[in-house]
Design a protein around this nucleic acid. Sequence first.
DNA 1: GCGTTACATATTTTT
DNA 2: TATGTAACGC
Length: 748
Amino acid sequence: MNYLDTLNPRQYEAVTAPDGATLVLAGPGSGKTRVLTQRIVYLIREKSVRPYEIMAVTFTNKAAREMQDRVEDLLELQLKGTMWLGTFHAICGRILRREAEYLPFDHNFVIMDSDDQQSLIKRVIRDLNLNDKTFRPGSVQGEISKAKNNLQFPADFVRSNYREETIFRIYEQYQLLLQKSNAVDFDDMLLYCWKLLHDNEDVRQKYGNRFRHVLVDEFQDTNTVQYELLKQFSSVNGNLFAVGDEDQSIYRWRGADYRNVLQFEKDFPDLQKILLEQNYRSTQNVLDAARAVIDHNQNRTPKKLFSDRGKGNKVIVYEAEDDRMEARYVVDTISQLIANGNAKGEDFAILYRTNAQSRLLEDAFLYRGMGYRLVGAQRFYGRREVKDMIAFLRVVYNPLDEVSLLRIINVPTRGIGEKAISNLRLSALESSRTIGEVLLDLGRYGPDSVFYPEMGRAALPLADFGARVVAWREQWERDDQITDLMDTIIRDTGYEPFIREEDDAEIDRWENVEELKRMAFEYQERGLAEFLQNLALVSDQDTISETTNVPTLMTLHAVKGLEFNNIFIVGLDDGILPHARSLDDPEEMAEERRLFYVGITRARNNLTLVRAVRRMTYGSPEINIPSRFLSYLPNELVISTAASFSGLSGERMSYIPASRWESRPQWADSIRQAFPAYKATTAAAAKAIVERKFEAQDVVEHPMWGEGTVMESVIEDGEEVVQVRFKNGATKRLIVSLSKIRKSQAKS
DNA sequence: GCGTTACATATTTTT
DNA sequence: TATGTAACGC
């Protein structure tokens, strides 16, 4: 069977679109990823485009990896390193390192994450003697970021009042500090890359010629720099293929502008526009609910999503007395559905607006003794002990990195306080060096260092620490084994007892350090440089442990691109969803609706919306009114149950027609009420999508990779996906329907 | 310079 | 709540 035969007419049109600009507006569940991957395969197979002539940009590393796997699978070809496939940041990082000669930093620059950025900005604000109440680091960071996303270097920064003038000064200083540290922040990676292509005709020609085809996923979430970059990349051949959905644009606050979709049409008059409206994921009821929500937004291309999966179950709306009961309701319902054999743990996702909401859910899972998987939240890389260890490594790698150095110079405390640091900075300034260089000098020459007398009381601890760093650098240069280096650092600094003391019942901080060591171990052959470079671009999404058959907890943002049989969305209260900060701005409200829309459309079969009358907010109880979004849902799509009427005053009810709420004395009762409907179709409907052909331990045969063993088999996007470990040691994720694997021997 | 404590303060989403 | 900072005493 030809790989193109499985496409519907619209999808086919998109995959085989002629050269030029193409915009595929793809509703949720309409096979967007499939179109993108098959387009790549089509270009390589039928159009004789070579893999290295293709650039494909995704939003996350995970999406990039999946796309690579799928394309390799279809082509039966290893693409590693040939096709330019990755996030904007990864691709730009690669270009910047190659073209560093044109740039104000060298090829081994480090990448500052938002925490690093924040502390740099804080320092600048302090150095400039500004009030950090009027110039809050967070908002300054936002404004600098916004400028960078709009292609403004400090020189281009518009300053028409005092505040802007001051922000400009901070921006300028901040940029200088980054440069001194041989560092760039996230936004810089895109901005410098754009500037490089924009100003340097040779470079633009080089990349423009190379990329015969440029493809982008999640186009609605591109911001100005990203869009301009795409134009640069495709400027020679003009083949830009964008896939997106305005209704799923949820990163406005990061500068994303779904109106790039409109701009795209303006910039490329010959643009071919293709609408994908058939949904292969959800039941019609789910789609109708989604539509009822999104239709409240203006300025969009209207889409009529349709599904041939039947009406399915109604949306369940449940109202709990308080937030603890809300969590219990969700967890108990899931636990019952699993116990009755109607669903498996991995069929569920619980979504919320803010990470803080995960806490009570976690408690409830713990209370029930059930496992769960938490995505995001306190990011692994954001944890103090992890950041500390990374900072040590960064200082060893690049002593010019001031942010990292200042982070760990007194961790664990070693007698280097405020005074010592200001002495250090003073000496650095006078000798026009960085504090890292001064520290290394102190370390190398001890009391003989020219800086030694200037250091006052803290001279000895400074020289000691400097000597440590020198020794670590020598060890690293001798033998680039990251884990050994980490062990030395931990031993020399006494980091283990120090951080163990901080352990509490909740977090085992030392365990996190060990986890980082395990990750470093994987870079043992590639070395410290690559480890640090990749670390910055890896998000937590990328480190999600693979399916362990438990429910998943995550934010509405994090769930984009995923799907589950059963979706719970909690916190449907005004002030939470929509978020309080969005209530007075129509644009923000539209984004909240899109966020809700994204959540709803993740559901294949069942959607449950939950709210709580009372909720603890910053430690004190607050009464909430139901989310106005609930009132968008037409009566006939909804079954609703409330734990009690106690909290519902007439005013609150005004958002939801009274007829829609049924009184239930006990919440347990309401589960029973909802349950039969659930039970009737979940199992059957799930089966209708796809049936698993493989299970773990099956032995399989692949024409290219040979014999392997199935590690696991899961359903994703209505497709069976198996993870196979092949005899040659490689582990691959394969889509059963697309890949030529055969079962050679069932699980014994 | 360090550690404790009291107090304030702000609480979205993250490549 | 939980996190950061300013102030104080050692």
